[in-house]
Design a protein around this nucleic acid. Structure first.
Length: 478
RNA sequence: GUCCCCAUCGUCUAGCCUGGCCUAGGACGCCGGCCUUUCAAGCCGGCAACACGGGUUCAAAUCCCGUUGGGGACGCCA
């Protein structure tokens, strides 16, 4: 194992979203590529917005996509003493100071600065006050360097130069005693020996604020890699407005985790013209050098295509397994005798040519797993006609005697009847399809019959013929 | 407003670092055709981009500068 240590550090204020998952993925890929350690750390220092439910959901999302972690999940709220201790050290060494400006004052100043077009920067009012023992609520601020420049050597974007004059004296300890993000992240990255900070590029501007804290504390500065953002179709940062952004929502919509991950890795990373990568391949081929600098737009159509590709390439048994819970939601009972011939996995090869998600596949599956079949009225009326009824009748009579009843023997019978009755393929196939499945679209009818088996196939045709007889058009003794 | 980042088909991208092989390649989507018992799938073909302006050079998508456009950040959020 190499000494590379990376972390995914979500804040548990909501679900795991697409952007977060992509960040986690790139951390994971780099860790695995280098044989390093992937750490999960929950940044829950915002005690108003953090919830345990959110932690569960985030971890569940990570598990679903197979991004296994080696250490953690650590929680920052378990480490509060550590941050306070480090903050006090800074205070003692004169690298931090108490600030008694109230939130209201700060807010008012910000508003005014905004209105007059001034920089929205803390004015340093308390910097020289030298408050040693505050008698009112006070926050601790870090004395940021105000001269010179800070250069961040980003692994993706290259060197980024910041004039230190733009740096705020940022709050590191809130008046409630909790550390703020920019402080706890530094302490943890340092103490956990993080070697590479891989995060969204909405954090680039935080980097020059964090670097001086590492230095003030005497810690080594990690390497940074800032990933481009993922945008919605309107080019705005991906958010709820853009529809589903929760990772688990994709699970519910019937996406395969491997497909989602594959889609996400290609949002910002590429390897020549290759589109499809197994997890192993991604790990092997990943490098920061081929990570895009520009933001990417999330394209649900391409995700759909990839998902369809994965369903086609996966082991049918595996797909059937993933399909089952979705089917059960629609009333399928795995213990019922009503099963496709060959089991659920026999359904997968014909249906995956027609479905792009597991949810779509469920709809195609219904005729084979639910009795009685749901019949489309219009289709039945149109195709199950008095004219074709005798041929269907004949199909049943002879079909009953077929042994074995397979798609091959069904096909033979079909052709015999075509010839005898002088019919074209379409004349008989479409009525048969409607009789068997209740709908006008399905896999090839021989496949359908094999999936249904002899008894159910014959019964379905008979049921359909009832429709003709109940209309009183032709008598039938079926 | 200030700071930072970015810029190849509608979208994801290859090419850029190490200028000529680029008449700019692939993929999604779209359009057309083939196949065909329906719907798909599959196969074949088509439309479609180097943001703009200046340099540098024999030669620029590739290097430099500027403009424009887009994104991000500016919290006692993370």
């Amino acid at each position: 194992m190499s000494d590379v240590r990376v972390r995914f550090a979500p804040s548990p204020t909501g679900y795991l979203h697409i952007g977060g998952l992509r960040t986690a993925l790139f951390n994971w890929l780099y860790a695995r590529h280098e044989g390093g350690t992937f750490i999960v750390r929950i940044e829950d220092t915002d005690r108003d917005r953090s919830t345990d439910e959110a932690i569960d959901v985030i971890l569940e999302g990570l598990r679903w996509t197979g991004l296994t972690w080696d250490e953690g999940p650590y929680r920052q709220t378990d480490r509060l003493d550590l941050y306070r201790q480090q903050a006090m050290g800074l205070l003692e060494r004169g690298q931090a100071y108490w600030c008694i400006c109230t939130t209201e004052e700060l807010e008012a100043r910000r508003k005014e600065a905004q209105a007059t077009g001034q920089p929205l920067k803390y004015n340093g009012q308390c910097r020289e006050r030298g408050i040693t023992t505050p008698t009112q609520p006070a926050a601790l601020r870090f004395k940021s360097p105000q001269e010179g420049e800070t250069v961040v050597e980003d692994l993706i974007k290259g060197a980024i130069v910041f004039d230190n004059a733009v740096l705020d004296d940022l709050i590191i300890l809130r008046s409630n005693g909790y550390p703020t993000y920019n402080f706890s992240v530094v302490i943890d990255d340092a103490m956990m020996g993080i070697t590479h900070v891989i995060r969204g590029d909405d954090h680039v501007n935080n980097t020059p604020r964090q670097v001086p804290i590492f230095s003030a504390l005497g810690y080594a500065i990690p390497k940074f890699a800032h990933l481009p953002m993922i945008l919605g179709a309107d080019k705005a940062r991906l958010s709820k407005r853009h529809g589903a952004t929760s990772v688990l929502a994709y699970q519910e919509m019937g996406y395969l985790p491997e497909a989602l991950v594959n889609y996400l890795v290609r949002l910002g990373w590429s390897f020549g013209d290759q589109e499809i990568f197994s997890l192993t391949e991604m790990v092997e081929k990943f490098s920061f050098g081929s990570v895009q600098k520009a933001a990417a737009t999330f394209n649900p159509e391409k995700l759909l295509w990839l998902n369809a590709e994965y369903m086609k390439q996966s082991d049918p048994k595996q797909v059937a397994h993933q399909l089952q819970p979705f089917l059960q939601q629609q009333g399928y009972d795995p213990n019922s005798p009503i099963q496709p011939q060959g089991g659920l996995e026999a359904l997968v090869p014909p249906l995956r040519e027609r479905a792009r998600t597991l949810v779509e596949m469920v709809d195609w599956s219904l005729p084979y797993v639910i009795e009685p079949v749901v019949r489309d009225e219009a289709a039945t009326k149109k195709f199950i006609t008095p004219e074709i009824a005798p041929s269907l009748q004949k199909f049943v009579e002879r079909g009953k005697a077929l042994e074995p009843f397979t798609k091959e023997t069904a096909e033979q019978l079909f052709h015999v009847i075509l010839e005898e009755d002088g019919l074209k393929m379409g004349n008989l196939a479409q009525p048969l399809r409607v009789a068997l499945t209740g709908r006008t679209t399905s896999p090839g009818i021989y496949d359908v019959m094999e999936l249904l088996g002899k008894d159910r196939s014959m019964n379905r045709i008979l049921e359909a013929l009832q429709h003709v007889s109940s209309c009183g058009i032709v008598p039938t003794d079926a």
